[in-house]
Design a binder for these strands. Structure first.
Lengths: 100, 100
DNA sequence: CTCATACGTTAGTGAACACTAACGCATCGG
DNA sequence: CCGATGCGTTAGTGTTCACTAACGTATGAG
């Protein structure tokens, strides 16, 4: 999983990124917001880290994960490159037509 | 793969959607733009169809795939819901700081 | 009709994914 | 010290994915 867009796309990871956007958190803190185990969250965080989207900092026996703006910027760039004018036109055109 | 965002995120499928945005195409026409086999493209198209992003129409022995604006709108909505103000702030703040 | 040919989908495979269970390792109370 | 507790990661498993190879089907030349 090298692609930042794909890494950020998985539903749980989307929410993890949003949580970490407000402030850094430990694995346990993040996991508390989800119905799955700490382990699953830990692995999502490791994957996000391998995609350059988050980084961890040791703090005693905890690990504070935070979002990396550089990785986030990469996601934004890929989203922008994906969402072409042609795709946007299809959406807006269809909406106009449905409002007629 | 129910999630439209995740379905659209895979790099090949991103480009398939862009190709189909300009005009409907057959599986072979799409596959000609990729280094992989028709079969692989066919399966990507089937997955996109199961996510409600594209639909096929039989035309002789060919199948003309086209983008469904309704599905595209779903993707746009999920992207918007994902990309919160907090995430955006992280990116723009970091950019401002780097330009200082 | 019939056989070659082009089109798209199904069968089959190796790798990656998402998850729980078991583990290692610090830290803290006693 | 040292055992218990809490934190995060590795081991193990079933599922899904991305792909090529083989297939079925329908069209078109003769």
């Amino acid at each position: 999983m090298v692609d930042a867009f794909s890494a950020a796309a998985e539903p749980n990871r989307r929410r993890i990124l949003q949580l970490l956007a407000s402030r850094p958190r430990t694995v346990g803190e993040v996991a508390a917001e989800f119905p799955v185990t700490r382990s699953a969250i830990s692995q999502h965080l490791l994957l996000l880290a391998s995609a350059g989207l988050v980084a961890a900092e040791r703090h005693g026996r905890q690990r504070h994960y935070r979002v990396l703006p550089s990785g986030l910027r990469k996601v934004q760039a890929e989203i922008d490159r994906f969402w072409t004018d042609e795709l946007d036109l299809l959406v807006t055109d269809a909406q106009l037509r449905s409002k007629t």
